[in-house]
Design a protein around this nucleic acid. Structure first.
Lengths: 343, 343
DNA sequence: AAATGATGTTAAATCGATTTAGGTAGTCTA
DNA sequence: TAGACTACCTAAATCGATTTAACATCATTT
C-alpha cells in the first residue's frame, strides 16, 4: 500500500515551503501574492504526484468536519427514511456528509449518540428527540452548538425547530370522522407520552371531539410501547373484539401504528371501514394500495428536510437569523381514502 | 463558550507530562509502571476538570476514525432502509458510527462518495455498488482497504461480498407461476442492465421458463430507468393495455417496481390477479396488506447486514480470514399471496 | 543614500492527542 | 563503590494540514 502523498512531499520536491503549497491548494495564493509561475509549478507537481489533501487533517486543524449528524428514533421508519434521504441530498450538494443514528426512543441512547457525535466534531445536528423537556437543548443553544429540532418540539424551547401542524391535522381527522357520522372513537398512540407530536395529535383529536360533545373512554385510549407495538396491539384488539367493544373509528398516530392496526384488525377479520374505520397520521405511498386504501394526514417531508437543513446551515455559517424565523410549523393535508368512509 | 479541557491542561495542573496522562487515560499506565498513587491523582483531576479526550484528535493520531461508510442506491428504499438500520445497530454496539450515502444508481456520484469517505478516513465501507465491473473494487482490495460488497456482485471479484440467491429466487417465482398455469409473462426490470441482481433475476426467470419452452417476447421485457420508473411504466402499461397486449403474469425485480406495477395496473382498472398476476422480488411488510396481497421473494435483510458487518469488522481488525468464507450467498424464500394465484 | 514600498516567500506555531526511546534517582549486588 | 537493576516518569517526534508574522529582495521615491 503506497504511502499517501502529503503536502510536505510536494513542498520538498519543489524546494518550496509547505505554507506556499497550502496557499495554492486553498486558492489563497493570489491574495498572498504568490507569483503566477510558482503557482503553476505547484499545481503541476500536485497533478504529477497525484496529491490529495488529507481532509481529515484539515478538519483537525480548522475544527470543521463538514459532517452533520441526524438522530431519529428509527431510520427504517418510512417517515424518517424519507427525511434522511432528503437531508442527505441537501448535505451532499453543500459538501456535507451525514452520520445517522437511531435511538429507539431511548433517551439514554440518544444522549450517548449526541455525545459521540460531538466528540466526532460534527458541525451540526438535526434531531427528532425523544427527551421530555428542552433543558438539554437549551444548554446546547447556549453553548452555540448548531442544531435543529425536527418533528418533535418542546414548550419553552430556544432551539431552531421545524415541525408540522399536528394539532390541526388531528382536528381535520376528527372533523372528517364526525362528518362521516361515526360516533365512537379510539386513539392508538405511542407510549412515551411526553412526545410532543403524540400529545398534540391526541389533543387536536380529543378537543375536536369534545366540541361535538364526544368523549373517548379510557379503554379506547391505547398507548403502545415503541418496542412492542405489535404484540401489545394484537392483545388489546383481541380483548376488545371478544368483548364486542370495538370503536366505530380509530385514529392512529403514525404510519407504523396505522399499519399495525390494519394488520391486526384484518387478522381478526374485522371489516374496515364497515365495522371499524381507520385514519392515520402520516401518509405513506402504500396506503394507496392497501385493502382498503387508508386515509391519512400527510406531512410534507421534503419541506421539513429542506427547512431543517437550511436553518442548520445558517447556524453553521453563523449567519444572523431572525429568532422569529427560527421556529417553522408546516401545514399538513388530509388524504381521504376508503378506510374512513362511513358505509 | 468555555474552551474544552485538553490533555495539556490536566498535565500542567498536575505538574506531570502529557504522556503520563495519556497512558492513564488509555489504561496503559500499569503496563508502563506508573504508580498507583499517580494514577489516582490523574484520574481525580480528570474528574475535577471534566476532561474528555478529543476523539477527533485521537483519530487523527492513530489513523482510525471508528466510522464506516454505507453506500446504497437509495436509503429511502425499504430494502436498504432496513439494511441501514441493522448495520447501524451492529456498528453502534461495536463502537462505530455510520455515514450513509445514496447514489441514485449514478456511478460517478458513487465514485465521488467513495473518494469523499476515504478522505474522511472511514475505517471501512459497505456498499451496494452501481458499477459495471469489479476493477475498482479489486484495486481497493489490493490496496487493503476494508470493504464488503452487498446485494450486488461482480464476476471476477476479489472483495468480500454478501448477496442472496437471486437466480434461485427468480426460479422459484417462475416455477410458481408456471405451476399456476400462467402462459405469458413479462419482466419489469431496472435499466442499468449490468447490475448483477437484475441480471441474475432475469436469467433465473427466463431460464426456468425456457425449460418449459416458454419465451418472453421483447415487448414484455420492460426495463425502467431508475429516476423515471413511474412515468415510463405508466406509459408502457397504457400502450400495452390499449393494444390488448397485457401478459398473464408479471415478475417485478424489486419492491419499488412491484409497487409501481400495482399502482399503474390499478389505475388502468386491470384486475390482479384475474387479468394480470404479479409476483415481485423483495418482500416488504405492506405486501401483506395491499389489494390484492402481493406474492414476493423475501430476502433475509437482517442476515445480509449481519454477515456484511462481521466480514467488514474482520478486515478492519485484520483478522486472517479464509477466502472461501469471503463470499456469502444467502437463501431466499417465496411468499405466495393472492396476486399470483390463478383464478 | 536612506527610507519606503511592493513583491514573493517561509519559519514556526498550532490543533490534541499517542508513542517510543530514553532519563533519573534510588536500591541492590558483587 | 562501580555497575546493574528497578521503578517511575518525560521529552520530543509525529499525524498533515493551516495560518500569521516576518523576512528577504529589489525597485522606487525623497
Amino acid at each position: 500500500m503506497a504511502k499517501r502523498v502529503s503536502i510536505s512531499d510536494i513542498a520538498e520536491s519543489l524546494g518550496v515551503s509547505k505554507a506556499l503549497v497550502s496557499l495554492v491548494v486553498n486558492d489563497k495564493a493570489d491574495a498572498h501574492g504568490i507569483s503566477a509561475e510558482t503557482q503553476r509549478r505547484v499545481r503541476e507537481k500536485i497533478r504529477e504526484l497525484n496529491y490529495q489533501p488529507d481532509l481529515f487533517a484539515r478538519s483537525f486543524r480548522v475544527g470543521k468536519t463538514n459532517t452533520i449528524g441526524l438522530i431519529v428514533s428509527d431510520i427504517s421508519n418510512r417517515f424518517y427514511a424519507r427525511i434522511a434521504r432528503d437531508i442527505e441530498d441537501h448535505a451532499w450538494s453543500n459538501g456535507y456528509s451525514v452520520i445517522i443514528c437511531s435511538t429507539d426512543e431511548n433517551v439514554e441512547k440518544e444522549m450517548k449518540q449526541i455525545k459521540l457525535l460531538r466528540d466526532r466534531k460534527i458541525d451540526g445536528l438535526i434531531i427528532s428527540s425523544s427527551q421530555d423537556n428542552s433543558d438539554f437543548f437549551n444548554k446546547l443553544e447556549e453553548a452555540g452548538f448548531p442544531h435543529v429540532l425536527i418533528d418533535r418540539r418542546f414548550d419553552d424551547m430556544q432551539s431552531a425547530n421545524v415541525s408540522v401542524d399536528n394539532y390541526g391535522g388531528a382536528r381535520m381527522a376528527a372533523e372528517h370522522l364526525l362528518k362521516q357520522g361515526f360516533s365512537s372513537f379510539a386513539v392508538v398512540a405511542l407510549s412515551p407520552d411526553h412526545i410532543s407530536t403524540i400529545r398534540e395529535r391526541i389533543k387536536g383529536f380529543t378537543d375536536t371531539l369534545g366540541k361535538a360533545n364526544v368523549q373517548i373512554p379510557p379503554r379506547w385510549l391505547i398507548s403502545l410501547p415503541f418496542d412492542r407495538i405489535d404484540e401489545v396491539l394484537e392483545n388489546r384488539f383481541q380483548s376488545l373484539y371478544h368483548r364486542g367493544q370495538l370503536p366505530g373509528a380509530i385514529f392512529t398516530l403514525n404510519n407504523n401504528l396505522t399499519s399495525s392496526c390494519l394488520k391486526y384488525l384484518t387478522k381478526l377479520s374485522v371489516k374496515i371501514p364497515e365495522e371499524v374505520a381507520v385514519i392515520g397520521f402520516d401518509d405513506i405511498m402504500y396506503f394507496e394500495h392497501t385493502r382498503p386504501t387508508v386515509s391519512a394526514i400527510s406531512q410534507p417531508t421534503d419541506r421539513i428536510s429542506e427547512e431543517a437543513f437550511t436553518l442548520l446551515l445558517k447556524q453553521i455559517k453563523k449567519e444572523k437569523t431572525d429568532k422569529r424565523q427560527h421556529s417553522v410549523v408546516l401545514p399538513v393535508d388530509i388524504i381521504i381514502r376508503e378506510s374512513s368512509i362511513k358505509h
